[in-house]
């Protein structure tokens, strides 16, 4: 294999390359400093409008109403960002890389898991529920669930077997897919994309949040695992005994 003239190595002109970046950072600093020193006439924001539409939105919390009704499309795309993150991480995984050392499964970690994981699942569910009228919501609940998953992944806990291996990818896709179908269903009912209003809205929002939180939690745990589940064709080569821990 001969070397075709490759691009110039990045080393020889690294200095001036940083200049535009530094200029940009200075701009950030100037912007923030100006905003701090001359706050000016602060505009009213949209709080009044949000409050006026809250009743039609279906939930008591302003934040949840914005995230899952007024600007639900943003949240839909955010769910895709997370799914995309998992795709990119998995696409970077190489089967022939060095086998990472398995950490020794300690007794402390195991008992900690038994104690914490149920608690985290409970707190996550509470946050999901509480999100409708105070702080909390799908992302926070998903993050706690993801934390529980990370804890289990730390020592490939046997508790992971509870989650079926084949369910991982569908589980990751559940949130985005459900979100999309709600949007399309709203159009089938003759409304706009993602249109839902007060009596049904609260139920739809809870369902959306549940699906989203589940997928977000799974996405975060899968990001930590970093490894795609083996496909059928490749199963013969790896030990089939390890369960979901295989994506760590």
């Amino acid at each position: 294999m001969k070397k075709g003239g490759k691009g110039r190595t990045p080393r020889d002109n690294r200095g001036w390359r940083l200049l535009p970046v530094m200029a940009l950072l200075l701009l950030f600093l100037a912007a923030l400093a100006r905003a701090y020193l001359f706050p000016g006439a602060s505009a009213a924001g949209l709080a009044a409008r949000v409050d006026a539409s809250l009743a039609a939105g279906g939930v008591g919390s302003r934040v949840t109403a914005v995230l899952l009704n007024f600007r639900a499309y943003d949240t839909l795309l955010e769910c895709f960002v997370l799914l995309l993150g998992v795709m990119v991480v998995w696409s970077l995984w190489r089967p022939d890389g060095a086998k990472s050392r398995e950490p020794a499964a300690g007794a402390i970690l195991a008992s900690l898991e038994r104690l914490l994981v149920p608690l985290m699942i409970m707190v996550g569910s509470y946050l999901l529920w509480a999100g409708s009228d105070r702080a909390g919501g799908a992302f926070q609940a998903g993050a706690i669930l993801g934390g529980a998953g990370v804890l289990l992944l730390l020592d490939s806990s046997p508790l992971l077997k509870v989650f079926p291996k084949r369910g991982l990818v569908p589980g990751l896709c559940l949130g985005p897919l459900f979100f999309l179908s709600v949007g399309i269903a709203a159009m089938a009912w003759g409304g706009n994309f993602l249109e839902y209003r007060s009596p049904e809205a609260s139920l739809i929002i809870i369902a959306l949040e549940g699906a989203a939180a589940f997928s977000i939690g799974l996405c975060l745990a899968a990001l930590f695992g970093g490894r795609p589940p083996e496909r059928q064709a490749e199963d013969g080569r790896d030990q089939p005994s390890r369960n979901q821990g295989e994506f760590r």
Partner: peptide
């Protein structure tokens, strides 16, 4: 934000 920051920004 505080919840999200603690759970995602710091923990995960």
């Amino acid at each position: 934000l505080a919840l999200a920051e603690a759970a995602i920004g710091s923990g995960l």
